[in-house]
Nucleic acid binder design. Structure first.
Lengths: 128, 128
DNA sequence: CAACTTACTTACCTTTTAGTAACAATCGTG
DNA sequence: CACGATTGTTACTAAAAGGTAAGTAAGTTG
């Protein structure tokens, strides 16, 4: 009768969907992973300039958390001025195809979604 | 020299990664899609009870936006008390395999990520 | 010796996201 | 005629996320 309510997969921190969302649902992580995948090694300032509208603060915290999780490697060259290069790790690279699957789906269907949204809004209006 | 700074794919609303993140980066959408994929047709209250820690408000706004985008269908039965059934549309179903790819990667590697995070934190501590 | 460069860090503030709790609509039942 | 059941809505609040702007280090250049 009851579809097991206790300890089911959908609740709490053990739910794999929530884990993934928790790690990659932020504004910049996936974007930076995909960028590094396409461009290879990049300096801090190159990432900043390519993305364009990321703040210095968010770029550092995002890169730091990607490094902390072993998705990105950071190489520091103690020159003056300093140089830092970021690159995907093997773990990071292993994620890329799955991201691209998802964005591929996005490219294929996002226009439909926007149109659906428009139609839904139109229907909602005519009921008032 | 300059890797085209103007109108590049990484900036603005045309970037497919940002579009996907914008639509699915919220706390509940993907979870609900996957739940409907596994359980088929579900009532409002069944979704609420299975997830357990979603608020009534967030369940309605998330379902409403999924419906608006054509990812979920809503069938209303004007009984007393009312009954509403939610189900994935074809468009919604077409997204499921890509979500599962990603959560599959999560299940395979999240333990490593957590361990990396622990090690990184340990290193950070010993430097102070 | 002030200015410049790069890669940060920090304090502060704004915006966005989500939660809480109360209320609405509906009609059959006790 | 109050009550319960179900699917919402609304106003208010709390928390999280992210942006802004200023500061830091450290050697090189004019």
């Amino acid at each position: 009768m009851s579809k097991k309510r206790l300890g089911n997969v959908w609740m709490g921190e053990t739910c794999p969907i929530r884990q993934v969302l928790d790690r990659f649902g932020d504004k910049w992580s996936i974007l930076i992973i995909e960028l590094l995948s396409q461009e290879g090694k990049l300096r801090f300032s190159e990432i900043a300039q390519t993305i364009g509208d990321i703040s210095q603060k968010m770029l550092t915290v995002t890169l730091r958390s990607l490094e902390s999780d072993g998705l990105v490697t950071r190489r520091f060259y103690p020159e003056i001025p300093p140089r830092v290069e970021y690159e995907l790790s093997d773990l990071g690279r292993s994620l890329v195809p799955h991201i691209e699957q998802l964005t591929g789906w996005g490219q294929a269907h996002m226009a439909t979604i926007m149109e659906n949204r428009r139609l839904f809004e139109a229907k909602r209006m005519e009921k008032n």
